[in-house]
C-alpha cells in the first residue's frame, strides 16, 4: 500500500471522529461536575431547635415574639402554638399588625392564625412544632411544620 492510499484517510477520519467524540463526552462530564460541586451535599447552618424557657413564663392569652428565632409563640386556652415570622413570599420577617401580620417587603398580609389575606405570599405562615425538653423548657423546632390549629398542651 502506498502512503497516499485511501485507507489512510479513513483511519484519519476515524481518529478525528473519536477525538471529537471524546472531547464532547469530556465536556459534558466536566459541565456536570461543575454544577455538581457547588451543590452542597450537607446544608450548613445552625440547628433550628430553640429552647424558649419554662411554660409557666407564658400566661394564657399571651403572645411572645422571638426576633432572632423568627417566630412568635402563642398561648391560648387550648395550649401553645408557634407561628413562623418568615414571610412565605420571599423570606422577609413579618411584623405584628392590627389584624395579624404584615410583611414590609412586598406588602403581604396574614391574619393572626397566619392565613394569607392579601399580597403576593403564596402560602400561610407555617405553624411550627412545639415540644418540651428534658428539663421541662418549651422547645420549638423551626424545621418541622405542623398543620394549622395544632396545639401543644402542658
Amino acid at each position: 500500500m502506498s502512503r497516499l492510499d485511501p485507507p489512510r484517510i479513513n483511519r484519519r477520519s476515524f481518529l478525528s471522529l473519536a477525538s471529537l467524540g471524546s472531547f464532547f463526552a469530556a465536556l459534558g462530564t466536566a459541565a456536570a461536575g461543575i454544577f455538581r460541586l457547588p451543590n452542597p451535599a450537607v446544608l450548613p447552618g445552625p440547628v433550628r431547635r430553640f429552647k424558649l424557657g419554662p411554660p409557666e413564663q407564658f400566661s394564657a392569652g399571651s403572645e411572645t415574639a422571638f426576633g432572632e428565632q423568627n417566630l412568635v409563640l402563642f398561648r391560648d386556652d387550648d395550649g401553645f402554638y408557634a407561628i413562623s415570622s418568615t414571610c412565605t413570599h420571599l423570606g422577609c420577617t413579618v411584623a405584628r399588625s392590627k389584624d395579624g401580620f404584615a410583611c414590609p417587603c412586598h406588602g403581604s398580609r396574614f391574619d393572626s392564625k397566619g392565613s394569607v389575606i392579601g399580597g403576593p405570599a403564596p402560602r400561610p405562615l407555617p405553624w411550627l412544632e412545639v415540644s418540651r425538653a428534658a428539663n421541662g423548657d418549651l422547645v420549638v423546632n423551626a424545621d418541622n411544620e405542623v398543620p394549622e390549629g395544632t396545639r401543644y398542651r402542658v
Partner: peptide
C-alpha cells in the same frame, strides 16, 4: 431549591 442552593450554598444568606 437547586438554584437557591447553588447560589447560597445553604438555605439562608450566610458565610457560604
Amino acid at each position: 431549591g437547586f438554584q437557591k442552593r447553588l447560589l447560597l450554598g445553604a438555605n439562608y444568606v450566610g458565610e457560604d
